[in-house]
Amino acid sequence: MTDLLQLLIAGLATGAIYALAAIGFTLLWQTSQTINFAQGEFVMVPAFFALIAMKLGIPYVAALVVAILMSMLLLGAAFRYAVVGPLLNRGVLPLVISTIALGIILKESVKDIYSAEAQVFPTLLPDRNVTLLPGVTISLAQIGVLVVALITIGGLQWFLAGTRTGRQMQATAQNPTVARILGVPVERMILYTFLINAGLAAMASILVSPIYLAKFSNGETLGLIAFVAAIVGGFNQVRGAIAGGLLVGVLDNLAAAYVSTAYRQAIPLILLVLVILFRPQGLLGRKEERAV
């Protein structure tokens, strides 16, 4: 029982990280119909920005800030204008292909420029065990991950629902044409979405890298999990992505403990197939008109 509780908390911690990646993915899809097949690499890369900054002698916390800013600049603004911009009115396929190619570029550059080896990445809080209830010990690092991720998600929810800009962004996501008529600066809102996606990916990167180490090939798994979380929760919902992320995280940890480690990766994929079979709009999603 206490084992299960520990696994659940560990699962929620990794799940909250997955949720960060899935939220950004959903936001991008909603506001600009961009399916970002490089999302996993977007989560892999910022950790290397931080590692490079630390190599240059910048202290840890400042290096994290540098990583987030670099990520917003390169994976947010530059991605918006250099990659997505020229392709927006060309239909879906060129954009899909371009993000696939971008994923390969990011992965190969990290491998060729930085290193092909997995890099140790420092944790926010020390990896020390604390006793919550008698018999239930959790590492402080995990609590740190959970708290930071939940604060980020909470902050985002507040921004989207509670500020004028946030509501304008939601309007853009729901119906760009009407939003434009109502005077919402749609272009700027789309840029904000890209910046937020990059910021969330950087947060996820900083939180996940101490657990899985920073490695060029991490993007494949992370991207897959972000897709699964977004679809399981409901593609058209931010809270769907949160629920999906947490669910996948918990399942992933339970699977690692109770199912063979060789097939651990398969569990979220089977969940994905089940959801598409029986509840295609996602667990929290609304039914949408089927695209022809």
Binding site: V92, V228, R290
Partner: peptide, 8 residues
Amino acid sequence: VQKHYLAF
């Protein structure tokens, strides 16, 4: 379902 589900 939607267009991109086959991709996933």
